[in-house]
Design a protein around this nucleic acid. Structure first.
Length: 389
DNA sequence: AATGCGTGGCC
DNA sequence: TGGCCAAGCAT
């Protein structure tokens, strides 16, 4: 049975406590809470100095949590710094045009995250007078704010007892308690949420943010997906997976669906002044509202004043989370009039030619436009490869 | 419940 | 090097 003195107990619970240990303090056992205290004191010593941890500004924490969805800390840091300097507060983000907002997210992926965030910022201005509501139900109602973001922001900023269960927390609990429910299942989520809530119920207010962040920090630094560092883990003693040799098989993961390949052809059309023709994608679905080369799945353009350069043609492969594009890029030059060669008159070689998923919005882009329009990484890679960027 | 939604790093 | 994986949310 583990025992701990009441004063040590208090000083771990309250990181700002300066109370001293007296010789007549009673010793009592708190075995069910011991692992919680160990995690908190581990976090006190091992927490990383991350940009968003220097702030208790709800907007800053919110931005960081949105960026961190399915995205690594090291990737997020420079984006976070830049985004906060461009859009330092909710009102700035709410009133900004979408284009520079998407541009600030360029390369991060999952672009609907930032479109939802901007929509949510506008909702906060309208519905909550510009203040992030310190209430789970109200905050959760905003666009792009799910159970995790809601718990993370409100517990970290306002010390509200709302669990934040992410992939890290699911992994830590699945191993510690030996749960074999698959990742992403309702059951595992529910169990983890409840386990976190049980601790939040008795922790003092000032430890609520540390509990939320400590659980995730342990999952990020020690209880990592592969090759877990159990030797450094403050919870190794009571860990079920450790005791049963199941650390490598927990949490159970469901097999992924196969990634389908989509073939496309893309037109890299440049004019005499070095401008390139881009199109904007529709405002829903994959890469919504981003700009890219005009592309299609079959056929090819046979256009007047256009000279193809098949010897410069190259193939690019781009892997998304759920599909893979295989793209043949066809470089070409146009001279003479600066019309949009893809508009009107249907001068397309094959009737079956489809304009992929472009929305019809097309534009000749000079250096200024290229630096302003948001593009995905494949488009950026192609433009760089051909020296347009 | 299952699927759509990006990207880069890791082994 | 290709498959796996990372601080989720919407539908």
């Amino acid at each position: 049975m583990l025992t701990i003195s009441s004063k040590i107990h208090d000083s771990i619970l309250n990181s700002t406590s300066h109370s001293k240990l007296h010789h007549d303090d009673k010793i009592y056992a708190v075995p069910e809470k011991d692992w919680v205290l160990k995690l908190l004191s581990w976090y006190d010593v091992n927490k990383r100095d991350l940009p968003w941890r220097r702030s208790k500004n709800p907007y800053a924490i919110w931005v960081s949590e949105v960026m961190l969805q399915q995205t690594r800390v090291e990737t997020v840091i420079p984006y976070f710094e830049r985004f906060m300097s461009l859009f330092p507060d909710l009102q700035t983000l709410a009133t900004a045009p979408e284009e520079p907002v998407l541009k600030a997210w360029e390369g991060l992926g999952y672009y609907s995250r930032v479109r939802n965030l901007q929509e949510a910022a506008r909702q906060v201005m309208e519905r909550f007078d510009g203040q992030v509501p310190p209430d789970p139900k109200a905050f959760r109602s905003l666009k792009g704010v799910g159970a995790y973001i809601c718990g993370a922001v409100l517990s970290i900023v306002f010390q509200i007892r709302e669990p934040a269960v992410d992939g890290n927390v699911c992994r830590v609990f699945a191993r510690f308690f030996g749960w074999d429910d698959p990742v992403g299942s309702t059951m595992l989520l529910k169990k983890a949420w409840q386990a976190s809530m049980e601790q939040l119920a008795w922790l003092p207010d000032e430890r609520v943010p540390d509990w939320t962040q400590g659980l995730m920090e342990l999952g990020a630094l020690v209880c990592i997906p592969r090759s877990a560092r159990c030797g450094e883990c403050p919870l190794a003693d009571g860990c079920t997976a450790r005791a049963q040799g199941k650390v490598e098989i927990l949490p159970v993961r469901k097999p992924r669906k196969e990634n389908q390949e989509i073939y496309r052809k893309a037109l890299l059309l440049t004019d005499e002044s070095g401008r390139v023709l881009l199109t904007q994608r529709p405002d829903k679905g994959l890469l919504a509202n981003m700009w890219e080369l005009p592309s299609f799945e079959q056929g090819f353009y046979d256009l007047e004043h256009v000279k193809y350069e098949p010897e410069r043609s190259e193939q690019f492969r781009h892997v998304f989370s759920h599909l893979t594009w295989v793209v043949d890029v066809m470089p070409a030059r146009i001279d003479g009039e600066k019309i949009n060669p893809l508009e009107g008159s249907g001068r397309v070689a094959e009737e079956s030619c489809q304009y992929g998923s472009d929305s019809g919005q097309r534009s000749w882009c000079d250096k200024e436009a290229l630096s302003r329009l948001p593009m995905n990484n494949l488009t950026l890679k192609i433009l760089k490869k051909y020296g347009v960027l």
